[in-house]
Design a protein around this nucleic acid. Sequence first.
DNA 1: ATGGTGGTCCAACCA
Length: 255
Amino acid sequence: MKIATWNVNSLNVRLPHVLEWLETATPDVLVLQEIKQITEAFDQESFRAAGYHAVASGQKTYNGVAVISRGESSDHITDFPDFEDSQRRVLAATIDGVRVVNLYVPNGHSVGSEKYQYKLGWLAALHNFLQVELKDHERLVVLGDFNIAPDDRDVYDPEKWGEAILCSPAERAALGKLLDLGLTDVFRQFDQPDSTFSWWDYRAAGFRRNAGLRIDLILASEALAKACQNSYVDREPRTWERPSDHTPVVADFDI
DNA sequence: ATGGTGGTCCAACCA
């Protein structure tokens, strides 16, 4: 089973890219973030025509997540229990016996800001949610735009970036707590080229300079991490005309 | 050294 994540920064704009990528990469599951459209505007028909099931938890202008899958998905969850949030950032679904949790983690703006506090509170609610999900699902994959670079290898210039947003100790500790639940960042189970990133700022010619971060992650439960055959970043869609600022990240599972 | 792009939607916010 080939599972991928992609922050598309508006599905209205990027639908042709997503359809093109589905056709060439042929994932079994693709989860999207920042679709930036209401659920009613989500173009299920285009995905059906491409041979995929598709569900979305949409929102106007900001956020919004979707799950595209070859197999039918069920048991959808769009909110953490006991965490009131109008922002559509979560979509969990079960596909062919695999529990898939699609996340668009808050960006946090800057360390110490109100948005940063929201991010840390959101991550705490995520932790509680995953604790329960892991009890219920042996085969669990948690993937999406985490807006956290796990360590210095995931940052183009760690000296310059320092402990700023996406790299602050509290964010990395929150990610560490998720991993402590029994999840593995499957990308790091394999040899990877240096300076492999999944996001490059549109500003300052980030992509041309490879000034990026690896903030799009695929975390797998023990059973799935063991079954993972490969994981990689597919940079190609970032070279296409009018690209998202993120590119797809993929994991192949022998299941 | 600074500032720079892009999406949504038309002023300003978000990233």
